[in-house]
Simulated assay, not measured.
Amino acid sequence: MTAFALGPEQEEWCARLRADTAGRLRPLAERGELGRVNRPLVAALGELGLLRRLFPDGGSPRALDLCLLRESLAQECTEAETALALQGLGACPIVQSGTAEQRDRWLPEVAAGRAVAAFALSEPGAGSDAAALALAAAPDGPGRWRLSGEKCWISNAPEADFATVFARTGADGPRGITAFLVPADRPGLGGQRLDMLSPHPIGTLVFDGTPVTAADVLGEVDGGFGVAMRTLNLFRPSVGAFAVGMAQAALDAAVAHAGTRTAFGGPLKDLQSVGHQLAEMATRVESARLLVYAAAAAYDRGAPDIARRAAMAKLLATETAQYVVDAAVQIHGARALRRGHLLEHLYREVRAPRIYEGATEVQRSLIAKELYRTAARPPAGAAPRD
């Protein structure tokens, strides 16, 4: 296939996944408690083999496969999509940078849906500026540290069974950060839930002299910023896929409603203003989908400009989803704002992706930086200017 068309087998797989999600995962999600880890849902993701697809044969997934997985889940059940994505985000650093012992201990548990993962990067004073994190890892003897400080806005916290935690072991800036794999039962580790708009669990992690050793390091000491960025570069296009899935669900709902709802003597779909609105929504959704697929395909082939492509995909897809969900609510009117309506749910869900894993403004800054860097580099074979 190309970045612009899925093959028949991929289309069939996505259709089967949407059917499985609607039939098995959505009922589990509906029985879950808002703001709490839904362990039966996570276990079902494991039983269906979906979590195993996050690290096939012990390695990282193809970015395009991850996008198709997240988009298909999101169309039918955002809770299932988010539960899967959080497992991948927390476990990906182990896949990419973990030791054999770390991988053997945790990856089978994550794949089976028995262990819940967290990715602990953000702090009260370091969200979009990840290099400014301040969680201290103070030396406590050779190959030993004690963590002190707080992580905030962490999905699955404080209920996760382990977290990938980024702490400062060296000088200020990105080069003094180390990634640690920290089990939830470590002494001095606590936290609390945060009451957030998003229905999935978000909370804090508080470290009070929590001990970690060289055996807990992911990658190299002072190399944690690279661990974080490699994970985010893989997951950013798939955040766009999550957004596309939500946008498609909202578009489908709006089209169906416009065909059955009567107003001014006929169905809404016969009003030119509604038809034009639906056409605009559909065009934006397809544009975002194509950019997401193109970024994922570029990642899979090892393209050098993946940072720019991933940022563009996340930017366009998340902004598009916000627009499409809002427009779908407008077409539905007040009924879309009733608690429990699909669009009421999507209206709450769609806001967060414009912030996490790099806010919209951060993506624009990253894209601009890459444009300047490319413009400053002379074309291959070009003669130097006087």
Rank of each mutant, 00 (worst) to 15 (best):
L371W: 05
E349H: 09
E101V: 05
G224V: 11
A3I: 04
T360Q: 08
A250D: 12
G113K: 09
R339N: 08
G188K: 09
I202Y: 06
A352I: 13
L371D: 15
P237N: 09
A80C: 03
G59C: 11
A313C: 13
E109N: 01
C77E: 08
A297E: 01
P56D: 06
T164E: 01
G149S: 04
L194Y: 05
H257L: 12
G219C: 11
A63M: 04
G143N: 01
Q87V: 07
C152M: 11
Q363F: 07
G226H: 05
A228L: 15
D300S: 14
G141Y: 02
E109G: 01
D129T: 14
T204N: 03
L68M: 15
E349D: 13
V292C: 08
G219R: 04
G98E: 09
G203Y: 08
K369F: 11
A120N: 01
W145T: 03
C77V: 09
R36I: 08
T260G: 05
R18F: 09
Y299D: 11
A250P: 09
P40C: 04
D326Q: 08
F55S: 02
L189F: 12
V325Y: 14
R114T: 15
C152Q: 11
G125Q: 06
P174E: 15
E76M: 15
A214H: 06
H257T: 10
A317V: 15
D326P: 04
A85C: 02
A375G: 09
Q322N: 12
T169G: 06
E357C: 14
A44I: 09
F235N: 05
